[in-house]
């Protein structure tokens, strides 16, 4: 079948070869001091490296533009606006705020990010004079949470608002921790439950217990399997990528906004790649069915998967 696109098989293959050669020339040289049989860069991961480099370049360009005063709009995220509302409600009711940072270890990026959000929440609760309870499942996360709460109180100019006993290590077992948090929800009846981080099977138990106590609930995770539970049981849910936009949304720092824009542009690139791939696969579907391996679809596919 003759190629239907201007990008013929030979041209696209040449482009693919250029792509890999550029990667090889720049990166995949042999390491003289190491194992000569192994390349310096794994060939299967060069497309990932290109994506990261593209992301980094866009990030720095947008960041410099933002620093020069260019406005980078960011859409309204209801779940993030609700954080202040939840803390304000707790203050009015004279009841504490409960912050659950998920159950994973600190090496999980969602847990690290949860600690950054905790600092913002601690600043707000310190400003309002509202107690903040942070139960944790991991002892390393506990030290991070203590530091985040302490720093948040200092940001608010109220270091005395930090109560060390309110950062509580409960258990490193999933359901023992879950039972402990449910106990805090029932006994201390927080008016706001903020659940941000990595959650597993305990997500619905926590969210439903919080619902039964009448607390306003804001939950967020990038773990797609737990999102339906939070959507069903919580008042506001921060979904997927929104979760990683919290600090940029709250602080509007140019450096942080630059990464949001870079993520959006990379997403556009990924979507465009998907569309091109689907179109090429559809056009050359007969060739694919016949087992022909030198179509533009294969050349395009090889950009991402050199196998």
């Amino acid at each position: 079948m003759p190629p239907l696109l201007p990008l013929g098989a030979s041209l696209s293959e040449a482009f693919a070869t250029l792509w890999w050669k550029a990667g090889a020339a720049a990166l995949a040289v042999q390491d003289v001091g190491g194992d000569a049989a192994l390349p310096l860069i794994d060939r299967n991961k060069i497309s990932t490296l290109w994506a990261i480099l593209f992301f980094g370049v866009v990030m720095f360009v947008v960041q410099s533009q933002a620093k020069k005063g260019k406005d980078i709009p960011i859409r309204r995220i209801a779940g993030l606006d609700a954080l202040d509302e939840a803390i304000g409600r707790s203050t009015e009711m004279g009841r504490p705020v409960l912050y659950v940072p998920g159950i994973d270890e600190i090496k999980e990026i969602q847990t690290i990010y949860s600690m950054m959000i905790l600092r913002h929440v601690a600043r707000k609760t310190a400003e309002f004079g509202t107690p903040l309870i942070v139960p944790v499942k991991d002892s390393v996360v506990m030290t991070f949470a203590e530091e985040a709460c302490k720093q948040g109180c200092m940001d608010a100019g109220r270091p005395d608002a930090f109560i060390p006993d309110n950062v509580r290590y409960l258990s490193n077992e999933q359901f023992a921790y879950c039972a402990g948090v449910a106990g805090i929800m029932n006994r201390e009846v927080p008016a706001a439950n903020i659940m941000l981080g990595m959650f597993f099977a305990e997500s619905l138990i926590l969210a439903e217990t919080g619902f039964s106590t009448g607390a306003i609930q804001v939950a967020g995770t990038a773990k797609q399997h737990q999102l339906p539970f939070f959507v069903a049981a919580c008042d506001y849910t921060i979904i997927g990528e929104e979760y990683f936009a919290v600090t940029a949304y709250l602080t509007r720092e140019p450096g942080l906004l630059g990464t949001i824009r870079a993520a959006d542009l990379t997403k556009v690139l990924a979507i465009a790649s998907l569309v091109i791939g689907v179109v090429l696969a559809t056009i050359y579907s007969q060739d694919l069915a016949d087992g022909v391996l030198d179509t533009p679809f294969h050349a395009f596919k090889n950009l991402f998967d050199p196998q």
Binding site: A148, A222, E241, T259
Partner: peptide
Amino acid sequence: IIMGAALGTLATGLRIVLGIERSYLSE
């Protein structure tokens, strides 16, 4: 959702590794 979360993870990782995001540190 996975694609958005993956890019968010990449953005957060780069922010931390390159020292752009520092809110996890004490003043």
